[in-house]
Simulated scan of single mutants.
Amino acid sequence: MRPTVRSRLWAAGTAFVAGFVIANVGILLITGADRWLWLATAVVLMITGAVGVLVADTGRRLSLWAVLGFELFVVATLAPLWWTFAVALTPADTTADSLLPADPRWSVFGDVLGAGVLRDAALTSVVAATVATAVAMLLAVPAAYALTRRRVRGGRVVVVSFVAVLLAPLVALAGPWSVTAADLGVLGSRWSVAPVLLLVALPLAVWLSIPVLRDAPWSLRDSIRSDGATRRQELRAFVVPVLAPDLLVVAALVWVVAAQDAVLGAALGPTDDSRTLPATLLLGSVEPSQAAAIGLLWLLPVLALVAIAPRRVRRLIGRDHR
């Protein structure tokens, strides 16, 4: 038996067994309308397994493991989002117990947009993330240019250092900075979170900007300069059309990561009107339905970024840094 056929048969068997297990769980343990969702998922996986057996010994260029992985990824992604949506639509005086709420409350999205605590928390997150991202990009782009276009001694060590700082636990920095912010009299201010967010935003901005500047067609820039172009013409002919789109996506990714911080927001926000939105949701100062609704709304910038520039995001995340 060829290795390709064996691999396809293993993938088909895994899909069928996974579907069989999900079907039995849905039949034996799940009640109500949710049972049909479990059964639909099981049917898709079992059909994948059956089709996989039929095409296992053919010459088709098909990876059943990729198909199975995609199906499981969709289930693992959509199921939590669907459950969050169900919790958001559940009335405040009841507990969500189904993926299909019997009496959905659609007004919850308007309620969270009008809630003063959540609006202030969202504004704090936006201000802090925007300031941190702007400063980080102003520092990261020249640093990435020097690391990619100049012979910097110890350049690899610098890049590894940025990664090490990026991986450092923020909880270890939250306490000291909260004491420093209190001594400076800015504890509880929207501006107190932004400087510490630079510890996340700056290394990430450098890390993502390095492949952008490394892979840019600098020969085009050199030819423009050799033709006697001015700085403004170079900006219009090279920087804006070639570098700016990818750097804007880098800034958007950095902003998204900075805006999701909850540890620093909880440590530096002693009151409800000074905490970031993730910290407000983390500390449970709002009811579950409102927390679920604002969480879904907070997800919109991420979805917009992925929808507007999916290829650029994939290229930035998939590039290496050698």
Rank of each mutant, 00 (worst) to 15 (best):
R105L: 11
R311N: 12
V117A: 09
P310S: 12
L268A: 03
G265R: 01
L300Q: 08
A102S: 13
L187I: 09
V117C: 05
R322Q: 08
L296I: 09
L204F: 05
W298C: 05
L208I: 08
A262T: 01
P104D: 06
G32L: 06
V44P: 00
R149M: 01
R150Y: 06
P288V: 11
L72R: 03
L264Y: 03
M46T: 13
F109G: 12
A164S: 13
L138Y: 09
L147E: 02
G26A: 10
A143L: 14
D120Q: 08
W207P: 04
L89H: 02
L297F: 07
G49I: 03
R319S: 11
T95G: 14
L208P: 02
A88E: 06
P80H: 10
P245M: 03
A66P: 10
W177C: 00
R60Y: 11
T95I: 15
A128P: 09
T31M: 15
P203M: 12
V55P: 04
V158D: 00
S274I: 03
P80I: 11
T280F: 06
A143I: 15
V249K: 01
W207C: 10
T280N: 09
I294G: 00
D222I: 01
T77C: 02
A143W: 07
S209K: 09
R6S: 01
A15T: 00
D97T: 08
A140F: 04
P241M: 03
A122N: 02
E287M: 10
V55Y: 02
L45A: 09
L29C: 12
L248G: 11
L45H: 00
G154I: 07
V212Q: 01
L268F: 04
L213C: 08
P310I: 01
T94Q: 15
F70H: 14
A291P: 05
T133H: 12
S7E: 12
F238E: 00
D34T: 08
L268M: 05
A194H: 06
I317T: 08
V200R: 00
Q290G: 14
G284R: 13
R150A: 13
V5K: 11
L283A: 15
A182H: 10
L253C: 04
P195G: 10
G154Y: 10
R231T: 13
R315T: 10
R153D: 13
R232W: 14
L184Y: 15
A140I: 03
G318Y: 14
P241D: 14
A140P: 05
V242G: 11
E71R: 06
A40R: 07
L248D: 10
L213R: 00
A182P: 03
A18W: 02
A33G: 15
G116H: 09
A244C: 04
V135N: 00
G295N: 12
A267P: 00
A79F: 13
D57P: 05
R2E: 14
V44T: 12
D57K: 09
R60M: 14
T133C: 07
V212N: 01
P101R: 07
S7Y: 06
A66C: 13
V256H: 03
P217R: 03
W38V: 11
S125W: 02
P203E: 07
R319W: 11
R35M: 05
A262W: 07
A42K: 02
A174K: 01
